[in-house]
Simulated scan of single mutants.
Amino acid sequence: MSSDVRFTDFKSDKQPTWCPGCGDFGTMNGMMKALAETGNSPDDTFVVAGIGCSGKIGTYMHAYALHGVHGRALPVGTGVKLANPDLEVMVAGGDGDGYSIGAGHFVHAVRRNVDMTYVVMDNRIYGLTKGQASPTSREDFETSTTPDGPQQPPVNPLALAFASGASFIAQSFSSDALRHQEIVQKAIEHDGFGFVNVFSPCVTFNDVDTYDYFRDSLVDLQDEGHDPTDRDAAKQKILEADKEYMGVLWQDETASSYEDTHDVDTNMSEIPDGAPEDGMDLVREFY
């Protein structure tokens, strides 16, 4: 891995088309800075994204990238990492992409504990499709399709990850640049599945979960002296419904990544000498 990479090396020449003020700008900048700080370079980084505003991130970052289908970014990221363990794989998604249509994939990606990082830009609304309630929207959040609110409690993604056996659970805020970078960096450095839910405000369609709201309500676990290796303390924080936390809530330092458990260390993207011709022989024999 390169040691002299700057975060600007991860910027592509494509200009983001997110709304001015969108929280995704800060989320992406923190991801790029974290990648550079951990010694990664665009040549050894693969970014996978699904559908939604967050899905454009692979276009705006200079790295290997794939813009997948709705809710299916995690299986692609898993396949990329297991095919080439030498790559730093980052999967990006939104609260709709990850906790609705992609919820099943989220649960299984968490329990497999493949060594990659999953960053979810949680704006508590569907932004790309013009402001419908998402799985993390408040129960009384009024939208054009839910004029009386969703009338059901929001998904707690941290609790979902914890119940699925996550080895790393964190939460950050896109506007707090330094802390966001630090938290994503810890997720990258974690040996296993690093999950970070990022509060990334939608300035166009969500006038409730705003920058001011998160600045006033967020509690930084670093200031509270929280021990992320204490399972009981992590569980208590994750299940507290009346507080919004920022920081690493849970990290199981004893858990083994999927790669370590199953001795996955072969780069399958490297084709041995003679393999293509051997492969063609098999094709001819088959037909």
Results as ranks from 00 to 15, higher is better:
Asn123Pro: 09
Thr145Ser: 15
Ser137Gln: 04
Ser144Met: 12
Gly131Pro: 07
Gly94Phe: 04
Gly104Gln: 05
Leu128Asp: 05
Asp140Leu: 05
Met121Arg: 04
Asn156Gln: 11
Asp148Cys: 15
Met121Ala: 06
Arg124Ser: 14
Val119Asn: 12
Met116Ile: 07
Arg112Asp: 14
Ala161Cys: 13
Phe106Trp: 06
Ala166Ser: 13
Glu139Val: 09
Asn113Ala: 14
Gly104Ala: 14
Tyr99Gln: 02
Val114Asn: 00
Pro150Tyr: 09
Val119Asp: 05
Ala170Asp: 02
Asp148Ile: 15
Asp95Asn: 11
Gly165Thr: 13
Gly127Met: 12
His105Arg: 03
Arg138Tyr: 12
Asp95Phe: 09
His105Trp: 04
Pro153Lys: 14
Pro150Arg: 06
Gly102Cys: 06
Ala92Phe: 15
Asp115Gln: 11
Gly94Arg: 06
Ala133Gly: 02
Met121Gly: 06
Ala161Thr: 08
Pro135Leu: 08
Thr129Gly: 07
Arg112Gly: 11
Ala109Val: 00
Phe162Ala: 04
Pro147Thr: 11
Ala109Cys: 03
Ser164Cys: 09
Thr117Gly: 10
Ser172Gly: 14
Thr146His: 13
Arg111Ala: 07
Lys130Arg: 12
Glu139Thr: 10
Gly149His: 11
Val114Ile: 15
Leu128Lys: 00
Met116Asp: 04
Pro157Lys: 09
Ser164Asn: 10
Pro157Tyr: 09
Ala161Phe: 10
Ala159Cys: 03
Phe168His: 14
Asn156Phe: 08
Gly94Gln: 05
Gln132Ile: 03
Gln151Ala: 14
Gly96Thr: 03
Val107Ala: 08
Asp122Pro: 02
Ala109Pro: 00
Ile125Tyr: 09
Glu142Asp: 13
Pro154Ile: 08
Ile125Asn: 06
Tyr99Ile: 04
Arg112Val: 14
Gly98Ala: 12
Ala161Pro: 13
Ile125Met: 13
Phe162Lys: 06
Ile101Cys: 03
Ala161Ser: 11
Arg124Ala: 13
Ser172Ile: 11
Leu128Gly: 00
